[in-house]
Write a protein that binds this DNA or RNA. Structure first.
Lengths: 142, 142
DNA sequence: CCTTGTTGTAACAAGGTTTGTTTCAAACGG
DNA sequence: CCGTTTGAAACAAACCTTGTTACAACAAGG
């Protein structure tokens, strides 16, 4: 179970909110969103909490509360979603320090860090090419 | 601890083998490699096993056994290493099926799969740009 | 053929992550 | 003040990753 589906869940949430909005329903509760994702409302609130902290959605509390998109679906890219829900770098370094007496042990981490930065950059660039509106369009075509 | 450092470990292993080779020592035991990575030889054997199955290293068994690079460091890219050690896709889909009655629940997986394929493609393209020889060069510069 | 060094693999522990669930205080519109 | 909903904590179940021990299989060299 330890394989992370947060980007998928958050994108699903936003795509569903985009469709509801187009249908005239701006405000959705976590329970309504959970019905589409088919999971527990608490899971959805956790995801929406990430998206709120990133400024992608807004929340209204109290009776008649719920969630609203803070931007149009065209203005939210999958990079925005990725940044909202992923914190760890793509590839982890050694969990314990390598042998710093060895020239490879000493120099490999900065060397690899440089490569990993480039890879993350490429990934981010690719994610930025797709918006929630694009995902919704393609979702409805399937 | 559940954050995967396999690409880092395998690249470290190959980089160290490349340096040893340049110094005239083609054959290394898992214990010798483990000394540079600063971990248990069994961990290294697991990593080398992945690399062997991918055809990047060869093994000699029996007394005086050990591991040899199967290609020159210039001919091994980080994409080769990634393919050898990573099996799961980058982003997981929902762990439980979404609600297929909902148009988003129904169409989101193929739509996202399409995007994820593109992202993985970009990642692979970037990894392919760097060889073990490149990593070694940069490692010794640090 | 035997000794010896090394691999391949299984089994297990420790610690971490992820999802799902229950619970309840806090917020707030009406 | 009531009723609905969020935010967050606490916990369980399942799984992953690393590290460790143990040992059979293998083969080179005497």
């Amino acid at each position: 179970m330890a394989e992370n589906s947060r980007l998928t869940i958050a994108t699903h949430v936003l795509t569903w909110m985009a469709l509801a909005r187009r249908r005239g329903q701006d405000l959705l509760t976590s329970e309504q969103v959970a019905a589409s994702v088919n999971t527990n409302p608490v899971i959805i609130r956790r995801s929406l909490g990430d998206l709120r902290r990133a400024g992608l959605v807004e929340v209204r509390r109290g009776a008649g509360a719920g969630w609203i998109l803070a931007r149009t679906p065209e203005e939210i890219t999958l990079l925005d979603v990725y940044n909202a829900v992923e914190q760890h770098p793509l590839f982890a370094m050694h969990h314990t320090d390598p042998n710093l007496e060895c020239p490879v042990g000493k120099g490999i981490r900065p060397a690899l860090g440089h490569v990993y930065d480039g890879v993350e950059q490429a990934l981010r660039h690719e994610l930025q090419r797709t918006s929630i509106a694009d995902v919704l369009k393609r979702t409805l075509q399937e």
